[in-house]
Design a binder for these strands. Sequence first.
DNA 1: GGCAGCATAGTTAACGTTTTCTACACCGAG
DNA 2: CTCGGTGTAGAAAACGTTAACTATGCTGCC
Lengths: 352, 352
Amino acid sequence: MARVSLGSRPTVKDVAAAAGVSATTVSRVLAGNYPVSASTRKRVLRAVQDLDYVINAQARALVGGTTRTVAFIIRDLVGPLFAYIGQGVEQQATAEGRVCLVCTHHGDADRELELIELMREQQAEAVVLVGGGLRTPEHLERMAQIARSLERVGSRLVLCGRPPIGPDAPATVVEYDNEGGAFAVTNYLLSLGHRRIAFVGAAEPEHTTTSARFDGFTRAHAAHGLTVDPGLVAGGTFDRESGYRETKALLSRDTGMTAVVGITDIVASGVLAAIHDAGLRVPEDISVAGYDDIPLSADLNPPLTTVHIPHEELGRSAVRLALHRDDYAQDQHLMLGTHVVIRKSTAPPKER
Amino acid sequence: MARVSLGSRPTVKDVAAAAGVSATTVSRVLAGNYPVSASTRKRVLRAVQDLDYVINAQARALVGGTTRTVAFIIRDLVGPLFAYIGQGVEQQATAEGRVCLVCTHHGDADRELELIELMREQQAEAVVLVGGGLRTPEHLERMAQIARSLERVGSRLVLCGRPPIGPDAPATVVEYDNEGGAFAVTNYLLSLGHRRIAFVGAAEPEHTTTSARFDGFTRAHAAHGLTVDPGLVAGGTFDRESGYRETKALLSRDTGMTAVVGITDIVASGVLAAIHDAGLRVPEDISVAGYDDIPLSADLNPPLTTVHIPHEELGRSAVRLALHRDDYAQDQHLMLGTHVVIRKSTAPPKER
DNA sequence: GGCAGCATAGTTAACGTTTTCTACACCGAG
DNA sequence: CTCGGTGTAGAAAACGTTAACTATGCTGCC
C-alpha cells in the first residue's frame, strides 16, 4: 500500500491529508496529550504507517524548546578509562530519554573549548566534560565564562572527573577522590615497608589529574614523616611508552627504589615491561602499583595493584545531577570515593 | 559590556537590533555568503560578541535541510574492538564537519532497530551500524525496509563490519574479510602441524561474525583435506568468562586438542587463563590464537597470535563513503583486508 | 540628465512542529 | 426551547533561521 513519495520526507501535513484531518489532530494523536476520537486516531495512525512517517526532531525542538540531547566531550573513545565514564554518561542519558552527542578532543584544550561552543549551538541540555583538563588561570577563566554562557541558554556545564572551576561558575561537578586514592595506595606501599618509592608520570603538573595524584603521593609520605626524593619523581605522559621509558631511566640510575607508582594503569603496564626487561621480578624485586583499575590491570603479569575509580557511576551521576538540577540543587558537587585494589604486583620490599 | 538578558538565548533578531541592522544581514555576516560592507560587518560581529550569540543549529537545520549530523549505533562504548571502529567513525565525521550522535544497544537487536528509528527522527545524514548483527530472514527484511526508509528521507544506512543485507537494499557496506582472516589463522595453525584444533565461541551461529569466522575455520580444514570434529567446537558468547568456561570443559574431556582458536581476543584471553589454570603451558602444550588484534592481545601472557582488523579505517571509510556517495556511487561496498599477526602464543604441536 | 548596472540592505515567505485560541456539534438541565 | 457544558476538531501564530525577492542609493556611461 505505502503511498510514499520518493525523495521527500512526509510531514505532518502529508499525514493529515492522507487521514483527512488537520495537522493539529495528527500532532495530538502522536503526542497523546489531547482527546481524539477513536476512529480519528485509527485513521491517523494508519496514515502514519502508510507514509512511514517519523517526526522531525529539529522542528519539534524548535517549538518545544528542548532538544532532549546530552553532549559529552571526551579525550578519546578508546581509552578504557574514559570509555567507561562515557558508557555511564550514555546509559544514564538513554535511561532519561535523551540522545547523546559525542566529540573527542585528543587532549587539545582549545579544541575542547571549540567543541563546547559547538554543543551550545546544538542546544544540548547538558554538556559533560569527561576527564581531567588544564588548570591554568586563563583556561579556568575561559571555562567559567563558558559555564555562564551555557547557563544563560538553559544548558548546563558538567565536569566529570575534574575538580570545580570556581565557586561562582555555574557547573555540576562529579569527581572522584583522586588525591585520596593516591594517598591510599602510597600509604599502602609505605606500610609494607617501602621507603624508596618512585612516581612515574609527573609531567604536566598543571593537569588536574597529575597534580592531584602527585599531591596524594606526597601527603602519604608526609604522613609517615618522609619527604619525597625529587630523584624518584619521573616525568612522562599518560601512555605506556612513557612508563616504559621513564622506568628504564630510573633503573639505569642507581636510585635504590623498591616500588613504583604509575600515574595510570597504562603507564604502570609500561613500568612492568621495563622491569621485566631489566631482568627483575615483580613484586619480589620491585613492587608496582597503578591507578584507574581499568579491566586490563587484572590481566597484567602480575595482576596489578591499583586504585579503583567508579567509572560508570561517575558518568551516570553526572547526567543525573545535571538533568535534575532542580531536585539536586543543593548538591551539584559530588565526590565519589576511590579505593585500593590489592593484587599481586605489590609485596613488602626485599630484606637488604 | 555584554548586555545579556538572563534566561533567554539571544536570537538573530536580538543581534540585529543591537547592531541596528536586519536579521538577514546578521545571517549574511555569519554565513559570509553575501557581500556586506566592512563597517556593517564590524558592528554585527561586535553585537554577536556582546550578546554571546550562537546560532540555533535546529533552526538552521530546519530551513537548510541538513543537520550535518552522523549517527553511530554500537553495541558498547567500551569493548576495545567496537570503540576503535567508533573512534574511526567519530574522527572522519569530525573531519567532515559533522557532529556525532551515539547510541548503544548492548547486543539487543530490537533495540538496535528502535535506535535507527530514533536517528531517523534526528535526521542524521548517515546512520552507521557498527559491528555484527543478526542474520535471521525477518531481521534482514526489517533492515532492508529501514534502509529504504532512510534513503527516502535522504539519509543513508551504513553497515560497518557487517555483511550486506541484500542486493536491493540501499546501504553502504564497509566490511572486513572475516572469513578470510579465520581461514588464514586456522591455515597457519594447520601449517604448523596442528590437526586437533578447537574453536571456542560458536554459539549464536545466526550472528554474522560468528558464522563467517567459523566458515573460515572450516574452509581451512577442508583446504588441508580435513573435516572439523564437532567435538572440538565449543559454544559460548563473546566474553572472557565464556572462553574460560568452554576451555575448561574441553580440557576435562579427552579431546586431544593441540590448539585453540578463540572467536575473539577477549575469548582467547579466557582460553589462556583456563589452560594456565589446568597447569599447561602456552604454546608448548597448547597453541592459542585469537581474533581482532585488540591492544590487549600484545600484553597477554604470552602475547597472542591473532587476526588484525583495520578497526579505525573501517569507521573512517564508512563515514567517507556514506557522505560522498555521489562520488563513490559505484563502490558502496568495500571489503578491507585482514591479516594474521604472529606473536608468542602459537608454536608447532608437541611431538607425541 | 536619464538610466543601466552594481553594491548593499531589507521584506517576506518558507521550513515542520506545537500551542493557543476559536468553532461546532451534541447533550442534559432548567 | 434555550443555555451552559463537554467532547472533538481546525485555524493561526509562533519557534529561529535562511533564501528568494524587492528596494535603495550610487557610479559611470551615453
